[in-house]
Computed example of a mutant assay.
Amino acid sequence: MSGRLLRLVCTAAVAAGIVCAPVSAAADPAPGPGDARSVAGLLTDLQRLYREAEKATETYNGTEERLKRQRAEVRRLDAELARTRASLHDSRGAAGRLARQQYQSSGNLSPYLRLLLARDPQHAIDQGHVIGRLARERVETVGRLTGAEKKAADLARRSRQALDRQVALAESQAEQRDDVRERLRAVEELLASLTPEQLAALAELEESGIAREQERFLASGALGDDAKPSAEGERAVRFAVEQLGKPYEWGAEGPASYDCSGLTSVAWQRAGTAIPRTSQEQWARLERVPLNELRPGDLVVYFPEATHVAMYLGDGKVVQAPRPGAEVKVSPIAANPVLGAVRPDPGGEPLRRYTPPRLPEGATDGSDEGYADAYAPAAPETSIR
């Protein structure tokens, strides 16, 4: 009997207080037609719940990325406001000095009258230059003071608006976290309600379904002959393979754990190319490539909403961080419904020689399923700073 789903399901069930006994295919009767429909329906429900949870996960991750950028914008505006206020302080000091100089010279002849009474033309010209320079300095000082005041007021307004957006994003993120936790609890409740016989049947049905989809996908000719990766693509692949066996964790970007897009984004970052953080942004912003032109290192995106992503290894396989409760593993490319593929380095020249990384024993073990409430994210940071 296959253990792809059962091992992960048992983990969730044990957490819920249910004991999963080993099931022998020889000892248990095969499901009848009615049972088969029931198991197929259960698998459909389970897969639907997984998809909903992963969609909510990517929404949460996207908000986290926007929140990071917003915090950086608030810090930038605050720093610029501090510099502007310092400049405003200096301009006010200069304006004060001008006012004092004007007051101190008010009892004497005006500079223009002194110019008229100059003892010779050259002296008059020299005096005129001095007066002109002083006038320009006054105009510039007043201009700097006025400009600094306007800039400080504008920056203070923008800083308040940026801070308001940060608070709104943090509140939205908290709501999204609660939404995902609720969806994961629905998965856990469904798993906990199943008998060992149903769990075994689900595992068998899931694995046979993936095998059929993979066979159909390869027979369709959608994939061409494997092309060689670029140098960066090879580095990204080798990094991803080195992460095999590490657990999936919400929003994780290594080094001890990853989520699906955390693995792909960090792998390419380590290879020398920064790419978007979430699967939906990777699908939207990276250059798309036909499936028959896939090369190792390309990213395969899944589901109509682009809510899951994996890295192509070649030979019809991908490396992925599947879902909470599972580990980074090697899977058939058709383990999930393929949306398309993108290439992080479209200008990268293919290597002349390429040796695929050696996969460790157990690289394909484990299930693509495995959501459990215990793996939901902790409360996000909601502090305004």
Rank of each mutant, 00 (worst) to 15 (best):
S2D: 14
L5W: 00
L8G: 15
V14I: 12
D35H: 13
V39G: 01
V39A: 09
G41P: 05
G41S: 15
A53D: 04
A53L: 06
E54Y: 04
E64H: 10
E64N: 09
A72M: 09
R83G: 07
R83P: 00
R85N: 10
A86M: 05
R92M: 11
A99N: 08
D126M: 09
Q127K: 14
G128D: 10
R136M: 14
E140F: 09
R144P: 04
E149R: 07
L155K: 10
R157V: 13
R158H: 12
R160W: 07
A162M: 04
L169N: 04
E171P: 03
Q176K: 15
Q176N: 00
D178S: 11
D179I: 06
V180S: 04
R181S: 15
R183P: 04
L184Y: 10
R185I: 05
R185K: 11
V187P: 01
E189T: 15
S193Y: 08
E197M: 13
L202C: 09
L202E: 03
I210G: 00
A211N: 10
R216K: 14
G221R: 06
G224D: 06
A227W: 10
A227P: 04
G233A: 00
A236R: 03
K246P: 02
P247S: 08
S257I: 03
Q269R: 15
Q269W: 14
G272F: 05
T278M: 07
W283S: 03
E287P: 01
P304F: 01
A306N: 11
Y312H: 06
D315I: 08
G316Q: 02
Q320E: 14
G325N: 02
E327H: 12
V330C: 04
S331C: 08
S331N: 07
A334Q: 01
V342K: 00
P344E: 02
G348E: 02
G348V: 02
T355R: 14
E361S: 13
A363M: 01
G366L: 00
E369D: 12
Y375G: 01
P377V: 05
E381G: 11
S383F: 09
I384N: 10
